[in-house]
Write a protein that binds this DNA or RNA. Structure first.
Lengths: 227, 227
DNA sequence: GCGCGGAATATGTGATAACAAAATTCGGAC
DNA sequence: GTCCGAATTTTGTTATCACATATTCCGCGC
């Protein structure tokens, strides 16, 4: 099977599993509280236990999974306090990232952000909520990446991952903003105008609105998680 | 329901290795750029490759190690920019933690911090720099723990771990403060007086002084790392 | 002496097996 | 019918093995 003998194709299996699990968590395939079983995952992916184990260990270290009873790993059930904390940290850290990004972004960078946001809006209008969420994530990660702070970027990715399993709650969520008032637009404008403070405030408002909506839904999420 | 079913005796080997490596990294046993070899570590600890592999994978996920050429793991060589970033994030995040801690700390908590700082001062006066560093770490972690923000605590632990390999540079470092002016004292006072702003500023000053000292030393550190 | 190439060694990866602990199922006593 | 305990099954952990690739080392030719 050397379709790609040396190219991108032959990543390590453990890395592939890790990426796959990350994505599935982001797509809310697993519910909060669900236990992830080694042999089940290994069979589904057609690999042995070893790389699956490594991937799970990494996700535990990233706080994307929770080690329960010193043995199995499960998707964390976020308490109200914990979700509040994650959101608060996102507000601080993504706010800082947006601020820094606005100091450094070129107009081409701003265009890229605008393109992502356009795809996100399109998906939202067509009711493809899954795609909308993916583009939303892209928007935030792209903004963070513009700050050119790799350590911060990894931390923010970790925070997103912790909220990932909750995203399915947003699938039925009403529109949070009128399209023309969406905070992302202000973020993009701030990039073009090199206005760090505006960028920070707009990003923080975006996250705050998202957080409030999620926190209101948390009780019903954790009820369904119990089942 | 035993008193302590699996308390001390048989922790998982992989966890033990992970803790051990964390500690060794903090104690600067490994130099920046050093490659960590599976079989060497396994032999030293008297275990097989599997748990060592898992521990290394976790440390890579925690940014405490760096995956090089998609195969081996090595202790990261921090660039000037990267060290600056880590320190900047520490100033933000530990500042916030100290602020929050000051809102919630009891006077018993303040006593505990004072005790840690006293041990640190004692170690410093006696020239036991290694012990001093350990107590310094304890002081910062204990303060963060008082903030009652577990997610933040894990992030800060990760940032410390990234600086860990550099700590050996501080062994010969001159005193950064006169004992009575040490910022830790101001932090403790802020806890007693419930003064969040003072707590944040004092903690930030402490980290800033440390950071500047470390940044000045970075060139020579990275030279020795090359060897 | 220098560079090159191949062999020997070192090193990491993934699969499998043996084992231990936990969860589940089943059967019998009441 | 219910509850308790033993047997069975499930599940996670570690060690070992086979293999692929990277690195080192040595000898040969120039």
């Amino acid at each position: 099977m050397d379709a790609e003998p040396r190219a991108e194709g032959h990543e390590r299996v453990a890395i592939r599993v890790h990426h796959w699990l990350r994505t599935e968590l982001m797509r809310s395939r697993f519910r909060p509280g669900e236990k992830l079983k080694l042999r089940t995952l290994a069979e589904e992916l057609g690999v042995s236990l070893t790389p699956v184990r490594e991937a799970l260990a990494r996700l535990v270290s990233e706080n994307a999974l929770e080690q329960i009873d010193h043995r199995s790993a499960r998707v964390p059930v976020l308490s109200d306090e914990r979700l509040r904390e994650v959101c608060e940290l996102r507000i601080d850290l993504e706010g800082k990232a947006a601020e820094r990004a606005a100091e450094r972004a070129s107009s081409a960078d701003a265009d890229r952000l605008a393109a992502i946001h356009a795809r996100m809006t399109e998906a939202r209008l067509e009711g493809r909520m899954q795609d909308m969420m993916i583009e939303n994530e892209r928007f935030h990660m792209a903004t963070c990446a513009l700050a050119d702070m790799p350590v911060l970027l990894r931390i923010v990715e970790g925070l997103w991952l912790q909220c990932g399993p909750l995203n399915f709650a947003l699938k039925q969520m009403r529109f949070l903003h009128k399209p023309e008032e969406h905070p992302h637009n202000a973020v993009i404008r701030a990039m073009r105008e090199r206005d760090p403070t505006l960028a920070r405030l707009a990003m923080q408002r975006d996250i705050a609105v998202y957080s409030d909506a999620l926190l209101r839904r948390l009780p019903e999420i954790n009820v369904t998680a119990r089942a």
